[in-house]
Amino acid sequence: MKILIIDEMHLGIVAMLQKAGHQVTYSPKITRSDILDQVSDFDGLIIRSKTPMDRELLEKAVNLKFIGRAGAGLDQIDLDYMAEREIKLFHAAKGNRDAVAEHAVGSLLSLFNNVIKADSEVRKGIWDREGNRGHELMGKTVGIFGYGNMGKSFAKRLAGFGVRILAYDKYKLDFATDQVQEVMWEKVKAEADILSIHVPLTPETRDFFTLKELESFGKPFWLINTARGEVISFATLNAALDRGILRGAVLDVLENEKFQKFSPGQKAEFEKLAARENVIFSPHVAGWTFESYEKINKVLVKKIKKAFKD
């Protein structure tokens, strides 16, 4: 097949696809207009998030047999139209699930132990032990919202910390283990000290975490979001932190990740959020490790080979 790669990828994927007999065009700097002009020539597309796989583009992809998404999120892909056209979709959540899980645990421990604040102070000659007294993870109840590849991997990383794990997934059943309790959402809200979000962005999850939803939790809690920023707004985060509903937050994703395109309201709310010492940010890198960069390739190529084997 003729395959077009439109985003930066570990170059190992080109060799793997060529070895499988495919003709590969690697064009990470290609523009959307050029994709629209050229896509009709290709049987497969491999993407990250450069441009939406919307109806406009898919209609021009008259020979398209598959899209390979180098990552987990599918919110920029017109899944209904792909199904209508019987275009196969492969994504590589298994390739970066371990990276996401480790990042979530590491960031939570950093938040609990004031690592960023303490580091900044010591560099300035401030030796404040009491002001940097931390919390222990042991004994806490951790709620997991969404128990797919990422949620399950996060739970696995928590196994040695002596925590109680409650997991909720609206679309999965019978996934409980000796370490993980499968529970209803109301039980998570009633008992969690920490909540980690691991759901895709869909119309159902967009803005799911309203202030009203957070108010229904049984006690103040810490929030981890390595999923999609659009599930909770800056304004909601600030309001919940101001009122003590949230004790702190780990945010690898934001409702708007293009700073230059913030609305005036988003700009003001983000600046308020950024001034808080009990919030840790990272630039959507939880799944972006040197190891996951290669693992994603292997997962995608394996799926493509399996689907189109002779």
Rank of each mutant, 00 (worst) to 15 (best):
I194D: 04
L158C: 12
E191Y: 02
K170L: 13
G160V: 13
R157H: 12
Y168F: 12
G162W: 09
A155G: 04
E186Y: 02
I194F: 03
K156G: 03
K187M: 02
V180R: 05
A176I: 07
E182P: 01
K170A: 14
I165A: 06
Q179C: 07
K189R: 05
D169F: 06
M184P: 01
D178K: 14
V188M: 07
K172A: 09
W185V: 08
A167H: 07
G160E: 06
K156D: 04
Q179R: 08
R164V: 11
D174E: 15
I165G: 11
E191S: 01
R164K: 15
F175C: 03
L166G: 03
D174H: 15
R164A: 06
A176K: 12
K172H: 06
V163H: 15
F154A: 05
E182F: 00
D178H: 07
V183T: 10
Q179N: 02
E186H: 10
I194R: 05
M184V: 15
L173A: 10
F161T: 11
Q179P: 01
I165N: 04
V183F: 07
V180Q: 06
Y168D: 04
I165Q: 12
L173V: 12
E186C: 00
K187T: 12
D178N: 09
D193L: 03
R164F: 09
A192W: 07
E182I: 00
W185G: 01
S153P: 06
L166P: 13
D174Y: 13
A190V: 09
K189L: 01
F154W: 06
A192N: 09
G160C: 09
V163C: 14
A155L: 02
D178S: 04
A192G: 01
Y168R: 07
A176Y: 00
Y168P: 01
R164W: 08
I165D: 09
M184Y: 12
V183R: 05
L166K: 13
W185P: 00
G162T: 03
A155I: 04
L173H: 15
V183E: 11
W185L: 15
M184G: 12
E191P: 01
T177L: 05
F161S: 10
V180M: 00
I165E: 03
K156A: 00
A176C: 05
A190T: 04
F161M: 11
T177Q: 10
A192S: 15
A167V: 12
A159C: 08
F154Q: 07
I194V: 14
A190I: 06
K187C: 09
G160Y: 08
